[in-house]
């Protein structure tokens, strides 16, 4: 085990030295990988920010619960209690039919009609704000409320929430497709970089094979090289995205001020960043593995 660790440490150190010995070509390869990765990751970051923003909108959709005309004060109070107990309900307010008529009368457009009415035709109602604004939550609330006794009609304007939800879903699909494409691009870039490395070390590989090197021994330094390039490319992509967000945030803060709110685009979190670096290393490793395997197959 110690010998295995020592070999791997030795190979890792010599691979790092190799990367540093040719700083320009290493830098350009890493930049290409970084740019390729920053595109899908950047789009993912933007959609994640948009999704979190959609959850904090103050202009959340209202649910209006119109009660039956013959609902007694006890039944109205029961509905109020149900709303208070419901964990999905953020806030609810009772609007009596008299209060509604008063508001109707105050509206200049409808004041004449309201005064000409013989008796109040408006029902008692509750105005409800949901804790979550996803289309799914709003729909389930709508369905549940509709089934409550003495509820005549529940009105929900969830169209915009649905539209936003669809847009976010579309964004996620586009991100996945882009991630797949650029992930493949990273594999191909690493494949080609490692192929060039193999060509420069062709003699060494041949001699090593002749004197007893296993395929694992031949592969090891190239796998480290691919993984290190992938990792460095991932870190470069992270910084590219951070720089992009920094410039976008300047413009966004101005826009947010106009709406009297505060909003800042944030980069990947710590756990997401680590996962991203791990994934980029794995893709680099895969490209290197494919490249060396192809060469070993050719010489065998």
């Amino acid at each position: 085990m110690m010998a295995w660790l020592a070999i791997n440490f030795h190979v890792l150190a010599s691979t790092l030295r190799k990367l540093l010995r040719s700083p320009f070509s290493s830098f350009f390869s890493i930049c290409v990988i970084g740019i390729a990765l920053s595109l899908p990751t950047g789009i993912y970051v933007l959609f994640e920010n948009l999704e979190s923003l959609s959850k904090t909108f103050t202009g959340a959709p209202q649910i209006s619960i119109f009660l039956a005309k013959d609902a007694s004060p006890a039944e109205i109070s029961e509905i109020g209690s149900r709303l208070k107990r419901n964990p999905l309900v953020k806030h609810s307010r009772f609007v009596s039919k008299d209060e509604a008529l008063e508001a109707f009368k105050k509206d200049a457009e409808f004041s004449d009609i309201a005064t000409s009415l013989g008796k109040n035709p408006l029902p008692d109602a509750f105005i409800v704000l949901s804790r979550e604004n996803s289309a799914q939550t709003l729909e389930s609330l709508h369905k549940a409320m509709q089934a409550w006794p003495k509820v005549e009609h529940v009105q929900l304007d969830s169209n915009w929430a649905r539209r936003l939800d669809s847009f976010l879903k579309l964004g996620h699909i586009a991100t996945v497709i882009l991630a797949l494409l650029f992930g493949l691009a990273l594999v191909f870039i690493t494949f080609n970089t490692i192929r060039l490395q193999i060509l420069t070390q062709k003699d060494e590989i041949e001699v090593a094979k002749l004197i007893g090197a296993t395929n694992t021994f031949i592969r090891r330094p190239f796998l480290y090289l691919g993984a290190l390039q992938g990792l460095a490319g991932g870190i470069a992509a992270w910084f590219i995205i951070a720089a992009g967000l920094h410039f976008l945030n300047d413009a966004i803060s101005e826009l947010a001020q106009l709406y009297a709110t505060h909003f800042v685009l944030s980069n990947l979190g710590a756990r997401e960043s680590l996962s991203f670096f791990f994934l980029s290393s794995c893709l680099g490793w895969l490209g290197a593995w494919l490249s060396v395997s192809r060469h070993l197959w050719e010489i065998s």
């Binding site: 004197i211 007893g212 021994f217």
Partner: peptide, 9 residues
């Protein structure tokens, strides 16, 4: 490869 390690070539 392991067999070849017995040889000096």
């Amino acid at each position: 490869p392991y067999l070849r390690r017995n040889f000096g070539i």
